[in-house]
Design a protein around this nucleic acid. Sequence first.
DNA 1: TCTAAGATGGGT
DNA 2: CCCATCTTAGAA
Length: 215
Amino acid sequence: MIYKNNTPLYERPDRSFFLRKDVTQAAKDLLGMILVSSKNGVITAGKIVETEAYCGKGDKACHAHGKRTPRTEVMYQDGGVAYIYLCYGIHHLINIVTNVAGQADAVLIRALEPIEGIEVMRKRRNFTTAKLASGPGTLTQAMDIKVHQTGTDLLGDEIWIAKSQEKEFEILEGTRIGVDYAQEDALRPWRFIIKGNKFVSKPIRSKKEGTTAFK
DNA sequence: TCTAAGATGGGT
DNA sequence: CCCATCTTAGAA
């Protein structure tokens, strides 16, 4: 692997990348890019292979929809920070905040293809035989990302996004996971994966038949 | 204060 | 199928 310290993992996009207005385009552009975490000098990183877009305006699935609370406050900042929250009391989920201040958009990172620090990830995942980072809750466990890091600047040196090394892939879209409560907005095709990648999460728990099919 | 529900994952 | 686990938001 050519991914070593001081090489591609440190080539970051600038702030403007995160300020874009179209969160679905941001979710697609994040595919193929690298999420990196540094804990006590230990680097773990993975290629983003699955994302979901959440829009503060007009999307009932978004935590910031129709309200502004302490938890979602970071979503209202300028893009390029992390929105991390605890799900089901157990799982730490990380989002990339996008758009300009006041527009509460974010992209949920749902799966990674591990590329750096794999042995560390394996240990943090208790030597599971399952994939190390194929799910929003498992990838944060593998990278040791926790809710207290919400608001972290993604242009800093704790958690960051590195530029894509290859863009030669097709993108498939489908409906988002676990958002049936959002009624008609649950039908939006705002989940994106890299076609053919083996590290995407399993299409799980769709109460409505057939809604997770990709095309 | 109280409580229901949740952008999940792993085991049976 | 079942359940762990706890914060958050909204109600009382």
